[in-house]
Design a protein around this nucleic acid. Structure first.
Lengths: 343, 343
DNA sequence: TTGAAAGCGTTACCAT
DNA sequence: ATGGTAACGCTTTCAA
């Protein structure tokens, strides 16, 4: 069923039917009802491509997933973000398209998106420090919003981010408040912008409490379970092991837990752990594992907010880039009590 | 840059330029070269929507992710599948589109896909026993391939599946060969078709070895870490606890490991575990954890094969549905040695 | 070997 | 309030 046959059946012009269906005011109520009823009856939907061609809009949002970012789609967080964004986009009639490419080809994909008119805008995930994709997208003229920010980029761009610095600062302060003095940071790769912000928050809390940061307690690498495991083993074997650990990812936190257990210690009693981006039930289920979390629901919320911003951005292309900072909820489960004393 | 301006600049008709770019034979070599050079120079790409409108093809593959399937996008396996499929699709010029909806609306999405002509075909993930989406898609007339199979559906449909029954049978046989007699099965929800096949393989191996299956050792539910944890705790507390566990998912396996450790036992020594769909480094890294896996690369391969089949299916819509069975690689890490003797 | 023109299914402008 | 028609950018048929 297309517009033409629907119009013929109704004895109306395509124009009128189109107008009725798109909510134009100049259609009489009687006609509108007739049209809507017929459209419903035939399950009519305007053809996406024809509509896109006529309006100059694809009604599609693109997202490029470089294959190297192995943990991007593996990372549960990504699913939450997509869930939030997808929901909001669909309310506005947008579809989401994913393209997975070898890293080197990422810029080619953006150029092609643009040349083909395949998408109206893109979401930029996992920004690095001085991320060159930002000038590229600006130059190409493809609307975008960054999920996160990129230190060192001076040209204007829109972003939606959770306040990583503040949440790490709060969490670290909380640990200090409990009496911890040896607090480790197991962070993501510091080429990733968020990792630097998290470290800054961690350091700010230490500085405020006049605790000298110990480089041996600050680890940074790609956030795998192995990384969390090996670093934790190493640190727990030190002369002055940490009594608490700030973890930048729930994947790494899996390894942290394993290392703690294998060291014959108990998480929450001997070593406190606060994990960002984490409220997965499988970390909270163990009633015996008090763990503190900045919630995944924050990430879902970020998806929703970003989608909303991107829709606005598409609709008002000349407006200056608008950005939004979100505060991550810091869910504090159960207190670990005072920091363990070691002799 | 569009076809018209490109043609004008070359002093050729749109027809000729289009033909040159699409590899039609009737274009002279000289002209073709000139056209290709100019197209490259201007980074010309045909507009997706215009091309789609003219050809009647969207060059997009849809995938619906019901929101209830929480672990579908969280599940690392899904990322592997998508990686494989996406790669193959892009070679044929197809994009992938994902729509995330509340479960109840899934059929509406398929109807809308079809009515809008938004996609050329869809991939059906996670088929249930007697999955009603199959008759629905057949009725709608939307080409599709099922990733997996659906017992009880009699009408023809195309599928690509890994041989779940055989891999579970092999793995169980392997455990029996090592001397295990009390082998537990921690399975997915048995409304899921694959779960039934896995159980069938497990039971077949037991039967072959004349071991009576113990219902108390067969657990089935949604594959969360909590599920793996709680069931393992329960079973290890039995009078005759299992000496080996077959796990249907790596997420559940995380809980299984935790339960084993918390029971003061050692995985691989006191309890052997074989996990399907799993070769994540964070399960293999612990040198002290011998674990046996049917590999994730099988799933990636399945994505590639399915994509290829779907492209074929789109191109020859009248051909009878073609299906492909893949054998999962069963990577055997290190032997657990003979089954532990309990007194 | 090349080109003119129709057609794909919409929307949007200009009439009426 | 409704309709005719051009336009969107491409492919494809028919002619030359």
């Amino acid at each position: 069923m297309n517009l033409k046959t629907l119009a013929e059946e109704l004895g109306l012009s395509q124009t009128t039917v189109s107008r009725a269906l798109n909510g134009y005011p100049e259609v009489s109520e009687a006609t509108r009802r007739r049209v809507e009823e017929a459209a419903r009856r035939h399950n009519y939907r305007p053809n996406s491509r024809a509509k896109g061609l006529a309006t100059g809009r694809a009604m599609v949002i693109g997202q490029v997933i470089p294959t190297s970012v192995q943990h991007e789609m593996v990372n549960p967080i990504f699913g939450d973000f997509v869930a939030g964004a997808s929901l909001t986009f669909s309310r506005f009639g947008y579809d989401m398209m994913f393209t997975r490419v070898p890293d080197a080809d990422e810029s080619a994909v953006y150029r092609e998106y643009r040349a083909r008119g395949a998408v109206d805008a893109v979401i930029l995930q996992g920004p690095l420090v001085e991320d060159q994709r930002i000038p590229l997208l600006n130059q190409i003229g493809l609307p975008f919003i960054v999920h996160g920010r990129s230190t060192g980029i001076t040209e204007p761009y829109a972003w939606v981010d959770v306040n990583n610095k503040r949440s790490f600062q709060h969490a670290t302060e909380f640990l200090i408040h409990l009496g911890h003095r040896r607090i480790a940071l197991i962070n993501g790769l510091e080429t990733m912008d968020f990792a630097q912000r998290r470290r800054a928050g961690y350091l700010a809390a230490l500085a405020e409490a006049a605790i000298a940061p110990d480089p041996a307690l600050m680890r940074s690498d790609e956030m795998t379970e192995h990384f969390g495991y090996s670093q934790t083993r190493q640190m727990l074997a030190m002369d002055q092991p940490p009594t608490a650990i700030m973890a930048s990812s729930m994947i790494a936190a899996l390894g942290i837990r394993r290392a703690i257990e294998e060291s014959g210690l108990t998480m929450g009693r001997d070593v406190s752990v606060i994990t960002h981006d984490d409220d997965l039930s499988y970390l909270k289920n163990g009633q015996d594992v008090p763990i503190f979390t900045a919630t995944r629901s924050s990430v879902r919320k970020a998806g929703e907010v970003l989608a909303q911003c991107l829709v606005d951005r598409i609709n008002t292309p000349d407006a200056p880039p608008q950005s939004r900072m979100l505060e991550a909820e810091l869910l504090v489960g159960r207190s670990t009590g005072p920091a363990p004393q070691r002799t």
